[in-house]
């Protein structure tokens, strides 16, 4: 039973860590602001949820789990809102999302 819980929590923690890593790489590699935000939201959503679920399994039925649940609830509320506010203000400040042909052009540039 204990081993099952340990394995489950390790799987969750590892998956969460992988998601965080992918999100981090994405922020560095993506071509423009909006796609970078998409990558950053991966760390907020999948990464944070999986890691916190993994820690909750380790903590078991205790006060710590309740606190972790509260943290998770706050994260789920605040991070999409922050992402929304960020995107709206970027749009208002005049940042245009890059459309398909722009991406193709950079690909050609990279090829040349």
């Amino acid at each position: 039973m204990n081993i099952a819980i340990d394995i489950a929590s390790w799987v969750l923690l590892t998956l969460g860590g992988v998601n965080l890593l992918i999100g981090g790489i994405g922020v560095l590699r993506m071509p423009d602001f909006y796609t970078r935000m998409h990558a950053a939201s991966l760390t907020d959503s999948m990464g944070a949820i999986l890691v916190i679920l993994g820690i909750m399994l380790q903590a078991g039925l205790s006060l710590a789990t309740v606190k972790l649940g509260a943290i998770l609830a706050f994260l789920l509320l605040t991070s999409p809102t922050a992402a929304n506010a960020l995107a709206v203000s970027a749009l208002l400040a005049g940042m245009k999302p890059r459309t398909g042909d722009a991406v193709q052009r950079t690909n050609h540039e990279a090829d040349a």
């Binding site: 706050f74 509320l77 605040t78 809102t81 929304n84 506010a85 709206v88």
Partner: peptide, 15 residues
Amino acid sequence: GLRHYLIPRILGRLL
């Protein structure tokens, strides 16, 4: 303030 932005305001009221 940010009265025009609905989502942050609603979340603010919650939090």
